[in-house]
Design a protein around this nucleic acid. Structure first.
Lengths: 196, 196, 196, 196
DNA sequence: ACATTCGGGACGGCCCGTTCCT
DNA sequence: AGGAACGGGCCGTCCCGAATGT
């Protein structure tokens, strides 16, 4: 019956789905709780307020990003190929629904950045670790000679992130995973230009 | 006193500012009207409801895009250079505030696409005309030989749009126009690869 | 149908009754509106929030005090007798319910003074005008020789107010109008000692 | 760790402070417990519900009143002087904070009397023992000839209580211990008129 | 017995988009 | 075009049992 771990996880899962679908503002606590069998009391016990729930969401998102993007890149001798593969996996692993709902992190970034400074910084931190991880892989490649020496790893990494977010955003608006794939292909073309 | 044209324009301007700042959902009609000297009656005289106001906003946005992006591209013999210039103008012409608030069209796209189908399609239309305009310029360049023949103009145009939106989104979240410029430079690098 | 004056008055009347019965905190806006045929929207249109409603209540209370206490005292050659008469009228004019609910002003004073500084000062202002009115009558009596010259009008007035509030408070708790009358008689004895 | 006596006392002390400051309704159990290092479980082990906690508060208040008011009056040959002294001690012994928070008993009386009948009667009992104690002292004085024979001890005692409560209430609202002292002086004048 | 953690409902105040009547 | 009124929804928070140690 009483399993706080499961309860908290259930709330977070429901919150993630609801926020992913409707955005943070439009996702009401009532709707989130309707997805679970829980009530306000349970939520209020685990989170002081809605914002804290949003922050916890970001923690989970950051964790997933590290798993799927940064870990696979570590220690690879040819970062360009590795990057293209990770991007390809990330894009092809998306369900139709995930394509149509867009990137959870970017959704939060666009919605909240100009509304809540705490939120904005929290999101920016996640983007930083993401970008730094890619940049580190590129810099490593530069040492090995597999990445062009004249590019700036940080700028390139930032652009890759930005493009990716933009591609998913465009595909979300168009409800077209075909468009997403087209954009991915163009992004891959760019990544290839980083090769040494 | 009673100048319906001016009234409607005033409402639209105030709505644009408020929606740009807070998003469509969070921009309340009350706040919008506070920016004018008008009351609810005036607003509901010109617009049947809040959604209609949002649609009118999109009309204005589309008009600006055509002016600043499509018109300058028409008939240019070297679309790649022209495109780089337009992009540069668009990025450098932004105020600090505009950087921090992000692209109005993309903001609406990300917020509303999964919430309101009418809105989504309306935004998608704007993106289509934007993309088609750039694609047409590229195709024209292919005929003239200034653009590589093996690229697909539509895909390239879509990627440019996506990257641009992503770059502004990242810069908005980071509150950094420096980041925006870095991303723009990388985008320019990509655009240059389209040259024939 | 649409009569803002009546609407506002209706809300104020209902709010007065509800607050008088349950106190400001315990009087919910829902209960107040249930006494009228109105909804949240009407209330929110006339008052920015619950506190403002409370302040408006105080305005109405102050007005009644001036009418029933200060006006009858003005220009009377024998303030002591006049005061005893006003007190007697005020006490005897109370219904059983009014006795059991206590003095509206004192109820608010006791409940809100340590919770809300704005409220406290607003109530203190009302008490000041009340006290000053009585003190002025006593000072006038001193000039005419009908009031003892060695008493301090302000202190005496304050004590009369305090005793009155205390008497009503005790009677409210005891649910006894008999107790109220007993106390009034003792208060009258005190007032008589002010005679010159 | 497990010391039920200390635990209960700690809860009562914290509850008294919190209720004194904010009133019974506004004093949340959470805030009360925050003053201790305890949790809800501890509270509900010792008290069935919030009301019971309030009743326990009244028990403690009654005890203090007997100590400070009734015991010092017993067997005094000159009750009028004794009374004036007790009043003076009670008023002068108050800290600034106690003046601004008002009389705990009267606070509860005014807030709860019309909301909860059990509470009302419980408070009325405390007032009765208080009043009866003073009345007994006055009646004793009448037998000794130190108190006027034509006054009714019960009525006089009730008025003294009422005035006292009223004075503290007025001073609380005005946040003025000077006002309290002024009122006390006038009350003393009244008490002196009871002398035989 | 004593104390903690967890969860349940129920409102409470605020605010919003909208309609109706001038 | 202005102003009044509507009705519903949202987040927060509160008082309280229930399950769980210790």
């Amino acid at each position: 019956m009483k399993d706080p771990e499961r309860t908290k996880a259930a709330i977070l899962k429901a919150a993630f789905q609801e926020v992913h679908r409707k955005g943070f503002h439009a996702a009401s606590l009532g709707d989130i709780l309707s997805r679970t069998a829980l009530t306000k009391g349970a939520l209020y016990h685990h989170f002081p307020n809605k914002d804290a729930l949003g922050h916890a969401l970001l923690d989970a998102i950051e964790q997933k990003i590290v798993e799927r993007w940064l870990t696979p890149l570590q220690g690879k001798p040819d970062p360009v190929s590795a990057l293209c593969e990770v991007i390809s996996d990330a894009v092809n692993g998306l369900t139709v629904e995930e394509v149509e709902l867009g990137c959870p992190l970017n959704n939060l970034a666009q919605e909240m950045s100009s509304l809540d400074e705490v939120f904005r910084i929290r999101v920016a931190d996640v983007y930083s670790t993401w970008r730094d991880g890619i940049a580190a892989a590129l810099a490593d490649g530069q040492k090995r000679g597999t990445v062009a020496a004249d590019i700036d790893p940080l700028n390139a990494a930032a652009f890759i992130l930005a493009s990716l977010a933009g591609c998913r955003g465009l595909a979300k608006n168009a409800k077209s995973s075909q468009l997403l794939r087209s954009c991915q292909r163009e992004l891959t073309r760019y990544v290839q230009t980083l090769r040494g």
